[in-house]
Amino acid sequence: MHRHIDAAPGIRLWVEERGPADAPPLLLIMGAQASGVGWPDPFVDLLAAHHRVIRYDHRDTGRSTWAFDEHPYPITQLAADAVTVLDACGADRAHVVGLSLGGMLAQLLLADHPDRLRTATLLGTQALSSTPYVRPDGVAVPVEELPGIDPRVLELWARPVPPDLELEAELDRRVEHWRLLSGDVLPFDAAYTRAFERGIIEHTGHHRTNTAHGRADASGMDRTRGLARNEVPTLVISAPAEPVFPPPHPQHLAQVIRGARLVEIPGMGHALPPAVHAPLAAAILEHSRS
C-alpha cells in the first residue's frame, strides 16, 4: 500500500507500507538523493515477513515534492520528516534502519526522539560525534583524521551532469556510480544494477538529477552527548569494502553510541546488491527480535 502524506505546506512525501498490518513497524531511511525504492524489493520482502515495513521518498527524491529552491531546508528537517512519516503511519515506536545519510538521520532520532524507536540499525554512515576513535592499541584518533571517501568516488561526484543527458547515458552514469560504491570485493552485476536503476527512474517518472541534499544546511547535527546517553538497542553494520565511510568508521560508531554492538557483513560496500540481502536482513531481524 502506498500513498502521499503532507509533511509541510506544499510538501508531500510518498510512503509505502509492506507486510502484516499488525506486525511491529520498521522504518527504512534511505541516503542522500535516494528514493525509498532504493531499498530493493527482495530485501524489503525479507524484512516484511516479520515487520510492517515503511519506506518513503525523502523530499526532493522519487515521487515526493521537489521544491528545494522554493522551500530550502536544513538536513535536520529530513529527520523531522521521518517522525512525520511515523505519525502518519500510526507508528508510536518503530525499529529504524538508516543507510548513509539515512544513518545520520537515524542518529538524530536516537538523540532527539528515543521514545519513538524500538531499535536502530546503522549502515554505511559516520558518527555524529566529536569523540575521538580509540584504536585497539589504545591510541585516540581525532575524528577529522579518520579515513575519507575513496578518491575515485569523489572524482565521479565532482563531474558535472549535463541537464539534457539522455536516459541511456544517465543509466550508464548510475551504473558506473554503483560499481564504485559497491567496493572491490563482491562481483559487480552491471545488468542487475541497470535494471534496478531503470525501475527507480520509472518510479520517479523522470531521470533528472537533484542536488538538494548536497546544498542543504548540514550544521547543528553533532549529537555527541545524546549518543553517549543512548538507551535504544543499536546495531552498527560494518562493511569491509565500504568506499564512503570505510573502517574504522563503523567501529567509531559502535564506540560513541552507548550500548551499540557491531556486526560485519562480508564483502559489503556502500550498496545493497543481492549478495548482501540475506545476511543483512538476518542481522536486522535478529537485532529487532532481541
Score class of each variant (00 low, 15 high):
Thr204Leu: 08
Val153Ser: 09
Glu155Lys: 07
Ala212Asp: 06
Pro163Gly: 07
Glu168Ile: 01
His213Gly: 02
Met221Asn: 13
Asp222Lys: 13
Leu235Tyr: 01
Pro243Gly: 04
Pro233Tyr: 09
Val175Phe: 05
Thr211Gln: 14
Leu181Ile: 00
Arg174Ile: 05
Ile237Met: 12
Glu144Phe: 01
Glu168Cys: 09
Leu235Ile: 05
Glu197Trp: 07
Ala158Glu: 12
Leu180Cys: 01
Ala158Gln: 11
His213Trp: 10
Ala212Tyr: 06
Asn230Ser: 06
Arg208Cys: 11
Glu170His: 02
Pro147His: 02
Glu202Asp: 15
Ser238Asn: 13
Pro243Arg: 03
Thr193Lys: 02
Gly226His: 14
Arg223Asn: 12
Arg173Pro: 00
Glu144Ile: 06
Ala241Phe: 03
Ser219Phe: 12
Gly199Glu: 04
Val143Phe: 05
Phe196Asp: 06
Glu145Pro: 00
Phe188Cys: 04
Arg173His: 01
Arg152Met: 02
Gly214Leu: 13
His207Val: 12
Ile201Asn: 08
Asp172Trp: 05
Leu154Asp: 11
Glu155Thr: 13
Gly148Phe: 02
Glu144Gln: 11
Arg174Thr: 02
Arg179His: 11
Pro160Glu: 12
Leu227Met: 11
Ser182Thr: 07
Ala212Asn: 12
Asp164Asn: 13
Ala190Glu: 13
Met221Lys: 11
Asp172Phe: 04
Asp164Leu: 04
Leu227Thr: 15
Gly220Tyr: 13
Gly183Met: 03
Arg215Ala: 14
Asp172Gly: 09
Pro243Ser: 04
Gly205His: 08
Leu180Trp: 00
Arg152Leu: 06
Asp217Leu: 11
Arg229Val: 06
Ile201Val: 15
Pro147Arg: 08
Phe196Pro: 02
Ala239His: 07
Thr234Trp: 10
Ala218Glu: 13
Ala218Pro: 10
Glu168Gln: 14
Tyr192Trp: 15
Gly205Val: 10
Leu165Phe: 05
Arg173Lys: 05
Gly199His: 03
Asp222Glu: 15
Asp150Cys: 06
Leu165Val: 06
Asn210Gln: 04
Arg174Leu: 14
Ala191Leu: 05
Glu197Pro: 01
His213Gln: 10
Thr193Ile: 00
Glu242Pro: 03
Asn210Asp: 15
Thr193Gln: 03
Ala212Pro: 14
Ala216Tyr: 10
Leu171Gln: 06
His207Met: 13
Glu144Ser: 14
Val185Ile: 14
Pro187Ser: 07
Glu197Ser: 05
Gly199Pro: 03
His213Lys: 02
Ile237Ser: 07
Asp217Ala: 09
Pro243Asp: 09
Glu170Ala: 15
His206Met: 06
Ala190Pro: 12
Asp184Lys: 01
Ala195Phe: 01
Ala218Leu: 11
Arg152His: 04
Glu176Leu: 07
Ile200Tyr: 00
